[in-house]
Lab assay of single mutants.
Amino acid sequence: VTVDIKGMEYHFDNPEEAKKFAERMAKELGGELKVENGTLKVE
């Protein structure tokens, strides 16, 4: 699973970990979490 945090890509084997990480980063950065082509994106 790929997580894109404002252009920086992180790769996770575990989808649950990827989702938790993306949600935490969205909250910390005040960004919006989206799913695009199987990639979790925070913008």
Results as ranks from 00 to 15, higher is better:
R24K: 13
E17K: 05
K6P: 02
L40C: 09
E28F: 11
G7N: 04
E23W: 00
E23P: 00
E16D: 12
M8N: 11
E32C: 14
E43M: 14
K41D: 05
G31F: 11
F21M: 02
L40K: 05
K41I: 13
T39N: 12
L29K: 03
I5L: 06
E43C: 15
M25G: 00
E9G: 04
G31P: 04
L29N: 04
E9W: 11
A26L: 09
F21G: 01
A26R: 06
N37F: 03
A22M: 08
A18G: 10
P15R: 07
E43I: 15
V1K: 07
V1G: 04
H11S: 05
K41P: 06
K19S: 08
V1L: 12
G7V: 01
E36H: 10
K41L: 11
G31N: 05
N37D: 11
E23V: 03
I5Y: 08
G30W: 04
H11M: 08
V1E: 02
V42Q: 03
K34W: 10
I5W: 07
P15T: 09
A22R: 03
K41S: 09
K6N: 15
R24Q: 12
E16Q: 09
K34S: 10
G38S: 03
V3L: 04
E9Q: 13
E43H: 12
A26V: 10
K20R: 13
K27S: 09
P15L: 15
K41F: 12
E32W: 15
A18R: 00
L40W: 04
V3K: 01
T39H: 12
K19R: 14
A18V: 00
N37P: 04
V3H: 00
P15C: 14
I5T: 01
T2G: 02
E36K: 08
M25H: 03
L33A: 05
D4A: 14
E36Q: 10
R24L: 11
G30Y: 06
T2N: 06
A22G: 07
L33Y: 04
E23R: 00
D4K: 15
E28S: 09
F12C: 10
K34N: 08
H11N: 07
K34G: 06
Y10G: 02
E32L: 12
A22W: 08
L33E: 03
E28Y: 11
M8K: 14
L33H: 04
A18M: 01
D4P: 02
F21E: 02
E9M: 13
F12W: 00
L40E: 05
G38T: 03
T39G: 09
K20V: 08
L33R: 03
E32G: 07
L40G: 06
E36A: 10
M8S: 09
L33D: 04
Y10Q: 04
L40F: 05
H11P: 05
K6D: 15
E9D: 06
E36T: 09
E17L: 05
V3N: 01
P15V: 13
V35L: 08
E32V: 14
E36S: 10
K20Q: 12
R24H: 13
L29S: 06
R24M: 13
K27D: 07
I5Q: 01
G30S: 07
I5R: 01
M8G: 04
A26G: 03
V42M: 02
E43W: 10
M8D: 10
T39A: 10
K20F: 07
A18Q: 00
K19L: 15
T2Q: 05
V1M: 12
E17H: 05
K20G: 08
L33N: 04
A18T: 00
K34C: 12
N14I: 05
G38L: 01
G31E: 07
E36W: 01
V42Y: 01
M25Q: 04
G38Y: 00
K6E: 15
G31K: 03
M8H: 13
V1I: 12
N14A: 05
E43K: 11
N37Y: 02
T39P: 05
K34L: 11
G38V: 01
V35D: 09
G7C: 13
N37S: 05
K41C: 12
D4L: 15
L29H: 07
A18N: 01
E23Q: 04
E43Y: 13
F21T: 01
D4E: 14
T39L: 12
K27H: 10
G38I: 03
V35I: 13
H11F: 13
K6I: 11
G30M: 08
M8W: 09
V35K: 06
E36D: 11
A18E: 03
M25V: 07
E43P: 06
K41A: 07
A22Y: 06
F21L: 02
E16K: 07
G31I: 10
Y10F: 13
N37E: 09
D13S: 10
E43V: 15
F12R: 00
T39C: 13
E17C: 12
M25Y: 05
K19N: 10
N14E: 08
G31A: 11
T2K: 13
V3W: 00
G31C: 14
N37T: 06
D13T: 10
K19A: 09
I5N: 01
D4V: 15
D4N: 14
R24I: 10
K19M: 15
E36I: 14
K20W: 06
E23H: 00
V42L: 05
T39R: 14
K27G: 06
K20L: 10
K27E: 09
Y10K: 04
G7R: 00
N37W: 00
A26Y: 03
L29W: 05
M8L: 12
V42C: 08
E23N: 00
I5H: 04
K6S: 14
Y10W: 07
T2E: 01
P15G: 08
G31L: 14
G38E: 07
V35E: 12
G38K: 02
E16I: 09
A18H: 01
R24V: 09
Y10R: 05
E23D: 09
P15I: 14
G38F: 00
Y10L: 06
K27W: 10
E16F: 08
H11Q: 08
K41R: 13
E9C: 15
T39F: 12
K20E: 13
K41Y: 12
V35R: 06
L40A: 06
Y10N: 03
L40Y: 07
F12K: 00
